[in-house]
Amino acid sequence: MADKQYAIVLDTKKCLNCKACTVACKFENFVPVGDDTYRIWVTEMPLQGKFPRLHQEYQPSQCQHCENAPCEKVCPTKATFRTREGVVLVDYKKCILCKACMAACPYDARFVSDLHEAVEKCTFCMHRVSEGREPACVETCPTKVRVFGDMNDPASDAARLLSSRQHYQLKPEKNTRPRLFYLA
């Protein structure tokens, strides 16, 4: 396991619901303005309780970069593939826009991009990561909800958070083994 295994650890308790990450992602990745065109999002979780005893959480999310990615399995042309670092990517040139991956994704993380003429989604900003920079959403976040790092490197912030804090993944019942970890 010499390769890095990238993951994002999220401490949603710090999320201000400020949407900085969603806008940063759009510019970084040429995602056009539009209701359906977004790679990441910040969900306002249901308000709990009755006035004046209220509680609310905010949940930023994106493509989960599943180890067992349903989208990869159903892609007829191998346009969707996993890199050695465990990042699920789309080779836009190979996409025939059958949209099977969109139907297969339990996280609704994919959409049709007019710009790429292919299905696109979060790439963990691999173009930045390969330059030694953090993904745009990670970098821009005021409170640093997201921590990006290598799970194989025990010294990385991400790995330390995972080993020291309780965490969960989204839709574990789908057996997708996401690379997005939410701190409890």
Binding site: C18, A20, V23, A24, K26, F27, E139, T140, C141, P142
Partner: peptide, 14 residues
């Protein structure tokens, strides 16, 4: 700014 840029700051590029 402690290394942050909010939605507005990012949208400035437009």
């Amino acid at each position: 700014s402690r290394g942050m840029l909010c939605a507005k700051g990012n949208a400035g590029a437009a």
